[in-house]
Design a protein around this nucleic acid. Structure first.
Length: 308
DNA sequence: CGTCTTTGACCTGCGC
DNA sequence: GCGCAGGTCAAAGACG
């Protein structure tokens, strides 16, 4: 299908030059109008269905996220009870109470027995897990595919970061970069960025903590920092076969959004999605060229030479 | 001149 | 206690 055949690009421009030509094409235009209205109805129906699907997916996402948080907290609590309850060989007493290192042990993954412990320990355990969860800074991971030739350890996520260190770790020959949020002086969020050991084209960013301020890129003054190559879940491109909208819902959200516990309302999400699509389309030179071709094509089709 | 990056030194926790 | 590894500090230099 070419752009000219695409129903959404048929702009309905009645630019016929003479009344004779209009009369001749009256029936044709009428048929076309009916067909377009039918197509519009169909699209509206489909849009409605997709909206419902999107709302359902958002609900599932929220449920999964809360389950994951509960599961992680259960694992941490299980590890704590292990170090307190029994003697753990090969592990020294931890400075300052041992909460942090217990968390690290849990992050390492003693998760197999976590669920059964949770089920056997009852409600008091759950309350304790909640308290631990609040005390511990939240960590999220974000993988971004980049150009393999690009050696920089920069993940554009809309926030302003200040690099304060770089280190080569044992398990990965690629250096790990350490960043702090520099937008607000008191913002406790830290970020570690390192190339994946398996796939060098993938940057893995680990975020720690929650921002105590809004997203700087949402402010008009600093819009230049908006992620151009960042992990936007939506991308729009124009192919010879027509415009293509790619929505990658499998990817995690950017840090600033991901760290908000409450999911966005469907209305807000749709608006943001529409803004992103419109922005991508208007920025894409191939789209504007295709649009110009479609309009000029429409002009030519309605000219007397082409109607005879 | 202010901000940011680089990089070696230092600190801290963990395993032996 | 020592060594190792990850994380952080801070001085120096680059850059706009």
């Amino acid at each position: 299908m070419t752009l000219f055949d695409h129903p959404s690009l048929d702009l309905g421009l009645n630019i016929g030059p003479s009344s004779m030509a209009k009369k001749r094409n009256y029936n044709l235009v009428k048929d076309e109008k009916i067909a377009l209205e039918a197509e519009l109805d169909r699209m509206n129906e489909e849009n409605k269905r997709l909206n419902e699907l999107l709302a359902a997916m958002q609900a599932n996402y929220a449920v999964l996220q809360s389950r994951l948080a509960e599961f992680m907290a259960a694992a941490a609590a299980a590890a704590t009870s292990t170090s307190e309850g029994r003697s753990s060989p090969g592990r020294k007493r931890i400075k300052g109470g041992g909460g942090e290192s217990a968390d690290r042990a849990a992050a390492g993954g003693s998760t197999s027995s976590a669920e059964e412990r949770e089920s056997s320990c009852g409600r008091g355990r759950v309350v304790m897990m909640r308290e631990e969860e609040e005390a511990r800074p939240r960590t999220t991971k974000l993988s971004v595919r980049t150009d393999p030739s690009d050696a920089s350890l920069v993940v554009k996520d809309g926030y302003q970061w200040r690099k304060y260190g770089q280190k080569v770790t044992r398990d990965n020959p690629c250096p790990r970069a350490y960043y702090r949020c520099s937008f607000a002086p008191a913002c406790p969020v830290k970020k570690k960025v390192q190339r994946s050991a398996g796939d060098r084209s993938v940057l893995v960013a680990t975020y720690e903590g929650d921002h105590n301020h809004g997203m700087p890129s949402l402010a008009p003054a600093s819009s230049s920092d908006h992620p151009a190559t960042g992990p936007s879940p939506c991308s729009v491109s124009v192919h010879p076969s027509g415009p293509t909208v790619t929505l990658d819902l499998t990817r995690p959200r950017p840090a600033g959004q991901d760290q908000r516990p409450a999911p966005e309302s469907p209305d807000r999400f749709q608006r943001r999605l529409a803004e992103q699509m419109a922005s991508s389309l208007t920025k894409d030179p191939t789209f504007t060229a295709a649009l110009a071709t479609a309009i000029s094509g429409r002009f030519l089709r309605l000219s007397p030479d082409h109607n005879s």
